[in-house]
Amino acid sequence: MNKVKINGVEHPIDADPNMPLLWVLRDLLNMTGTKFGCGRGLCGACTIHLNGQPVRSCLMPLAVAFGAEITTIEGLSASGDHPLQQAWLAHKVPQCGYCQSGQLMSAAALLKNNPTPSDAEIKDAMSGNICRCGTYPRIEAAIKSVAGVQIHQPATNSKGAI
């Protein structure tokens, strides 16, 4: 059986290799932190990291994940204290919260690749993530508050896998 490494843990998965990772995570592994918003790469609610890069899991077939490292919101940090997660709390960013997993995963990938982004780079990196509740001003402020701060490596535990 094929295995997929998610948040540091190998999961044997018996499914159609074309099944998008989003549904593998949500329906097969019960990791529902990654959200469905459009299924077409338009909203970013489903953003995860594939080998450290942000990808839309709704468009990413399971086959791509064989042999790759996947990080989801559940594994962004070992105990929910990634600097961005802390900044999100400090800035009281969420409203309904539905888009926020995707927002955090996009922001985390941005800062990992570019620890000191300019305002334009922040907006650009976050432009694929829709927030219908309108939390953009706080997302921007929260990211800026962390930009330049040392970011932990994503944890390699199984916290998110229920």
């Binding site: 529902t32 990654t34 959200k35 919101i73 929910g80 709390l89 960013v93 969420p94 919260g97 997993s101």
Partner: peptide
């Protein structure tokens, strides 16, 4: 007072249960 929403900590950890998450 500007109390923090009770759900913030769960939201930032992807630990929430929306209608779509029911199993």
């Amino acid at each position: 007072k500007p109390m923090a929403m009770a759900d913030f900590a769960d939201i930032v950890r992807g630990n929430t249960s929306f209608g779509i998450d029911t199993k």
